[in-house]
Design a protein around this nucleic acid. Structure first.
Lengths: 222, 222
DNA sequence: CCGGAGATGGGTGGCACCACCCATGTACGG
DNA sequence: CCGTACATGGGTGGTGCCACCCATCTCCGG
């Protein structure tokens, strides 16, 4: 554990599939004396590898990345490097994914559209162990709390399981049940079973609606 | 017209809905002595207004922006400010889109994923009146040229007809052929005919791909 | 230790989608 | 005035999606 009483700069791992965004984030963060980007990853898998290598203090992760999403990466990183702080960076102000991010162990959630204003502060908050919530997230949090208080029931519950999300991603990318079954080495019926469960859970009618949902929540790009 | 024989820095209008991307692009461009960002817009409409106000030499436009897409903005800007150079910035390496950009009057097309490397060079190419094409675009261009050379016909022209676009919108919103037929007061077969024509034109396989296409080009929201 | 949740797999049937085939009418430009 | 593009409509057949039904196995928590 790094001795935070005599702090050097916070060592940051940056993961985003767009070099341009990485460049912007790096310039913003490296402009601060107490923050330093030590590694850049272009996808979730690379982030995981680089985190193991560089042991950063903080990981700033894009939610939507190829191969492994930022949320999956966050879960893996949490498990692999327990002391690591996590900050999610996203294009979409989506309530569901905001809660997923918190559950995946993220300390904060910053919208790309306002990131130039909030990002540095979010990093510092994360390192102090405090959550950082952009204003829209606070609104979502309050609305969600009120909703549950009104209905009187329990925790937000994860809408989709990890396996379902995996299959949703493939469905939304346009793969047929047969293709997905081949990819995951399971039967077509199981793929259809998962897809049917998702349709039921989300109150949707077909894979087209699932696709738009996946795009909305940032699981895939159009 | 500015006198390019005694050039000051190229005055650039930057339009992207993500402040973070704008920040990155601005830092990259302002780091060059011959380039200067004079205005930033968060969407296409704002870009149009700022272009009228600042009369920049070059506009760097994100393809996907809220309210008015970069392509729409490019067309409007071309019409409003004939001398203006245009450079499109995009997340998607999509052939169709790339040709739309060229048709909208863009001098170049740069992928965000490689923009930190290519962007400055693309700006200078645009100001010299030369096209800038990232390698993938060159490949697409050659393939397209060969396709047309083989078939012996002319310019790409408008991809979809007005009626097709109308039907695409409904398809992408998730309506079935029967519903669309009822809405437009035509037969189911005609709807299917139009849809099949679109699939053929765009080289796609099913309505799911059509949906993503519609989202990409800003015809509908996810 | 048992119940629930999750992942796995199978069968049947209806319907939408999609790829082929065919045709007619209109409008516009060479 | 004729060809081409566009919109219209019909038929046939294959395949995938989706809604139902059924089951087994594992894992975790009460």
């Amino acid at each position: 554990m790094i001795d935070r009483t005599v702090p050097g700069p916070v060592r940051i791992l940056l993961a985003d599939d767009h070099a341009l965004v990485r460049r912007g984030v790096r310039l913003i963060l490296d402009g601060e004396p107490d923050l330093e980007v030590v590694a850049e990853a272009g996808d979730g898998a690379e982030a995981l590898a680089l985190a193991r290598e560089h042991r950063p203090d903080l990981a700033v992760l894009d939610v939507a990345m190829p191969r492994m999403t930022g949320l999956q990466a966050a879960r893996e990183l949490s498990a692999a490097l327990p002391g690591l702080r996590l900050l999610m960076l996203t294009m979409y102000d989506n309530e569901q994914y905001f809660f997923e991010a918190l559950k995946a162990g993220a300390s904060g959630y910053v919208l790309k559209s306002v990131a130039d204003r909030d990002l540095v502060e979010a990093c510092r908050s994360a390192m102090r162990g405090e959550p950082f919530l952009y204003p829209g997230a606070v609104t979502a949090l309050i609305r969600h709390y009120l909703d549950r208080a009104r209905q009187g029931d329990g925790v937000p519950e994860k809408i989709l399981t990890a396996r379902e999300e995996e299959i949703l991603k493939l469905v939304a990318e346009g793969h047929s049940s047969k293709e997905i079954a081949a990819t995951l080495v399971i039967s077509v019926k199981t793929v259809e079973r998962h897809r049917a469960n998702m349709l039921h859970k989300l109150g949707m009618r077909d894979r087209l609606e699932l696709t738009r949902y996946a795009i909305r929540v940032g699981l895939i790009e159009p």
